[in-house]
Simulated assay, not measured.
Amino acid sequence: MSTSTGAGERAATGRAGGEGGGRAGRMISGAAVALGCVLFLGGFGWMALVYRPYTVPTGSMTPTVDAGDKILAQRIDGSEVRRGDIVVFSDPLWGDAPMLKRVVAVGGDEVACCDKQGRLMVDGRPVDEPYRLNTRDPASPMSFSARVPRGSLFMMGDNRATSEDSRLRLGDAANGSVPRAAVVARVDGVVWPLGRAAMAPRTGAFAALPGGGPSAPGPLRTGGAAIVAGAVLILAGAAYGPVADRARRRRAV
């Protein structure tokens, strides 16, 4: 009689412990899913506010970005742009579609090409440009010289042999430059195809000039990390409940 009673008490205790463990597991699972949703949806919402997606239309910026690449560009004001930045802009004189180029000179700069070593010159200083395609070739197949008007930017592609940029518009009143107000975003990273997904590299090529190098990277890494962490928590939290229940049933047997 006492043996039966002891076994019943142990069984009741086991059930109570299992129910308590089940409640704790469900709470942990729910908390993980809830936190994951906050991070996942919050990250997506934040990225949608900060970034604009674009598809690169041509190969004029190869090898930095290729035709067909999907990129994210941070929404900025043109006043924030610095030399070396890769920007998206829209100017009626350049056509209706958004254009993607690198800023090589800003208002007040004298930009020319090329010196005896084939380098770009900005305010009389040579600029080594490691981001160019075919760095053994001169920085431009055509010679040019221009002074950039105040409030404007001189644009060039990284693939200088094929890029239609400020060099082809030197005859206009702005010496081929684009108003800062035409800039709508700064490229921060490639997101597709996955094999090329990466942050857009910043360059120190213009660091010796007044104003220093390019702008600091935007929050793409932080936003991406929040989205990934949220997805992991959602999946882990959703899987925890069934796995824990199965483990409790096995222990009960």
Rank of each mutant, 00 (worst) to 15 (best):
residue 5 T to K: 09
residue 8 G to E: 14
residue 8 G to K: 13
residue 10 R to A: 14
residue 16 A to Q: 14
residue 19 E to W: 15
residue 19 E to A: 15
residue 20 G to K: 15
residue 21 G to M: 10
residue 21 G to W: 13
residue 22 G to V: 02
residue 24 A to L: 12
residue 25 G to Q: 02
residue 26 R to F: 06
residue 29 S to K: 08
residue 30 G to R: 05
residue 31 A to H: 11
residue 32 A to R: 02
residue 32 A to I: 02
residue 33 V to A: 03
residue 36 G to E: 08
residue 36 G to W: 06
residue 36 G to K: 05
residue 38 V to W: 09
residue 39 L to G: 02
residue 43 G to S: 07
residue 44 F to L: 15
residue 46 W to Q: 08
residue 49 L to R: 13
residue 51 Y to V: 04
residue 52 R to Y: 13
residue 56 V to W: 02
residue 56 V to Q: 03
residue 57 P to Q: 07
residue 58 T to F: 00
residue 60 S to A: 13
residue 63 P to Y: 07
residue 64 T to G: 08
residue 65 V to N: 04
residue 67 A to W: 10
residue 67 A to G: 08
residue 73 A to D: 07
residue 80 E to W: 12
residue 81 V to S: 03
residue 83 R to P: 05
residue 84 G to P: 06
residue 87 V to R: 07
residue 88 V to A: 08
residue 89 F to S: 00
residue 93 L to Y: 11
residue 94 W to Q: 08
residue 95 G to A: 04
residue 97 A to G: 11
residue 98 P to D: 09
residue 99 M to V: 09
residue 100 L to N: 02
residue 101 K to W: 05
residue 101 K to R: 15
residue 102 R to E: 01
residue 103 V to R: 04
residue 104 V to K: 01
residue 105 A to Q: 04
residue 106 V to M: 09
residue 107 G to N: 01
residue 108 G to N: 04
residue 109 D to I: 08
residue 109 D to N: 09
residue 109 D to K: 06
residue 109 D to F: 09
residue 112 A to V: 01
residue 115 D to H: 01
residue 115 D to I: 01
residue 116 K to N: 13
residue 117 Q to R: 13
residue 120 L to I: 06
residue 125 R to G: 05
residue 126 P to W: 09
residue 127 V to W: 05
residue 129 E to N: 06
residue 130 P to Y: 01
residue 130 P to H: 09
residue 130 P to F: 07
residue 134 N to Y: 14
residue 137 D to W: 08
residue 137 D to A: 15
residue 138 P to K: 00
residue 138 P to L: 00
residue 140 S to A: 07
residue 141 P to C: 03
residue 141 P to V: 04
residue 144 F to S: 02
residue 146 A to D: 09
residue 147 R to D: 14
residue 149 P to T: 09
residue 150 R to L: 15
residue 153 L to A: 08
residue 154 F to A: 00
residue 154 F to C: 01
residue 157 G to Y: 06
residue 160 R to S: 04
residue 162 T to K: 10
residue 163 S to G: 10
residue 163 S to P: 05
residue 167 R to H: 04
residue 167 R to G: 00
residue 171 G to S: 14
residue 172 D to K: 00
residue 173 A to S: 12
residue 174 A to T: 14
residue 176 G to R: 01
residue 177 S to F: 06
residue 182 A to T: 01
residue 184 V to Y: 04
residue 185 A to M: 07
residue 186 R to N: 03
residue 187 V to H: 09
residue 187 V to W: 08
residue 198 A to C: 07
residue 201 P to H: 05
residue 202 R to L: 12
residue 204 G to A: 12
residue 205 A to E: 06
residue 206 F to G: 01
residue 211 G to Y: 11
residue 214 P to C: 10
residue 214 P to S: 13
residue 215 S to P: 13
residue 218 G to H: 07
residue 219 P to F: 10
residue 221 R to N: 10
residue 224 G to N: 11
residue 228 V to N: 07
residue 229 A to C: 08
residue 232 V to P: 06
residue 234 I to R: 03
residue 234 I to Q: 04
residue 235 L to C: 07
residue 237 G to C: 08
residue 239 A to Q: 07
residue 239 A to S: 14
residue 242 P to L: 02
residue 243 V to C: 04
residue 245 D to E: 14
residue 246 R to V: 09
residue 247 A to L: 15
residue 248 R to M: 12
residue 249 R to I: 05
residue 252 A to T: 05
